[in-house]
Amino acid sequence: MALQWFPGHMHKALKEIKESLRQVDILIEVLDARIPYSSENPEIAKIRGDKPCLKILNKFDLADPAVTLQWQKSLENDRNVFTLTTSSDKPAESKQVLGLLREHFAKKDASIKSINAMITGIPNVGKSTLINILAERTIAKTGNEPAVTKSQQRINLGSGIVLYDTPGVLWPKLENPHSIYRLASSGAVKNTVMEYEDVGFFAADYLIKAYPELMKARFKLDEIPDTELAFLEAAAKQRGAIMRGGRINLHKICEVLINELQAGKLGRISLETPEMVAHEKIEMAAAAKKKAEDKAKRKQRFKDGSLTPDKRDRKEKRVEKREAQSKRMKQGRK
């Protein structure tokens, strides 16, 4: 699936984040607990440097708790990174953010009284809801749709903590094809830029392998089919996604599957694990290496020219003729 969604306001937001990052003491990055890797903006990682970072795995109530624990351990292997899980249905958990910030800086320097923090996150990850909980008032506009926040704002949370809110930004190019599908499956991108059937097949293939029992229970199936197509057909029959003539309405059942996945109706599901991502990074590195090698070969072929032996001989004769002519001209000047 080709997915390019980088609106102009996102380019501007990323530029503002780079400029404002120098003024803050810590970065708070809100991630989707179901896709911590795919919802982590690589552009932010590039500009963060060694600045402390609190990674919040939000929507924890929708994610597989065992997999989330794996992700916390993996993320905290990075220097100056610590993590916290939150969910919108438990505001008290979100309140822990303030205490963690104070505790982190108190360990380093007890004299620090004020803390400037910047909060970032991809669209529809729950960042605005989290901000409203921390501020105990409606500060940020929320909505179950990507890209609600459009501009950066400064929020005084009290107790010496100032929060710089930023628009949810994606990045110019999504390198990992698996991440593209996971972002679409989780609702991080607008439905208008994805094809339901394409994403539905990806989600079905993953879910019948990673969470077969949950799929059996949700779609009332006796057995889980071996392929994603067979699963979607069986699920469609159970949900009445049938067209005239008894044909399966694949678009409808894919839409149902994705919507229920995003709403958490399928159960607590994580769409990626640290082990999966490690393998994907190896595959991406190999693909990038091959791409670079192919590019170098094309460049060399262009440099050498795609000439037949006969054409090459004629080219060499033309070069010799020009050199001889140039030599005679120089002798004539003497």
Results as ranks from 00 to 15, higher is better:
L257A: 06
E260A: 06
E255Q: 13
K281G: 05
R247F: 06
H251Y: 14
Q262H: 02
M276W: 02
H279W: 13
S270K: 02
L266A: 05
I269S: 09
E283P: 00
G264M: 05
G264D: 06
E275H: 01
E255N: 13
M276I: 06
R247A: 09
K265F: 12
E275G: 01
R268K: 15
E283R: 01
E280N: 04
I253F: 07
I248E: 06
V256G: 01
H279I: 09
I253C: 03
G264H: 10
S270E: 08
N259P: 00
H279C: 10
K281F: 13
S270A: 11
I269Y: 10
E272L: 03
L257Q: 08
L261M: 14
H279K: 15
H279F: 07
A278Q: 13
G246K: 07
T273M: 09
E255H: 14
P274S: 03
I282K: 15
I269W: 13
E260M: 08
L257H: 07
L257I: 01
L271C: 03
E260N: 10
G267E: 11
K265S: 10
M276T: 02
E260H: 06
I258S: 02
M276D: 12
G264K: 11
T273H: 07
Q262E: 09
L261A: 02
L250Q: 07
L261P: 12
A278E: 14
A278N: 05
I269C: 10
G246H: 10
N249F: 04
E255C: 01
E280V: 02
A263S: 15
G267S: 08
H279L: 14
K265Y: 14
V277M: 13
I248N: 04
I282Y: 00
S270D: 05
V256W: 14
L257T: 11
K265D: 15
K281P: 00
L250G: 05
T273C: 10
K252I: 00
G264Q: 12
I253S: 08
N249T: 04
T273F: 04
P274D: 02
E283L: 11
A278D: 07
E272D: 03
K265I: 08
I269N: 11
L266M: 03
A278C: 04
E283A: 06
L250D: 00
A263I: 08
I282L: 14
K265A: 12
H251I: 11
I269Q: 09
E283N: 04
G264Y: 12
P274W: 00
E255L: 14
K265P: 12
K265Q: 15
I282F: 00
E260Y: 02
E255I: 02
N249Q: 02
R247L: 05
G264E: 09
E283K: 04
N259C: 09
E272S: 05
N259H: 13
L266Q: 13
L261W: 10
H251W: 06
G264P: 06
E283Y: 00
L257P: 09
L257K: 12
L261G: 11
S270F: 10
L271H: 03
V256Y: 15
V277L: 06
V277F: 14
L266P: 09
L257W: 07
E280P: 08
Q262M: 13
P274E: 00
R247H: 11
L271S: 04
Q262D: 04
S270H: 04
E272H: 04
G267C: 11
I269R: 12
I248R: 01
R247K: 15
K252V: 04
I269A: 07
L261I: 11
R268F: 00
E283C: 01
K265W: 12
K265G: 10
K265L: 15
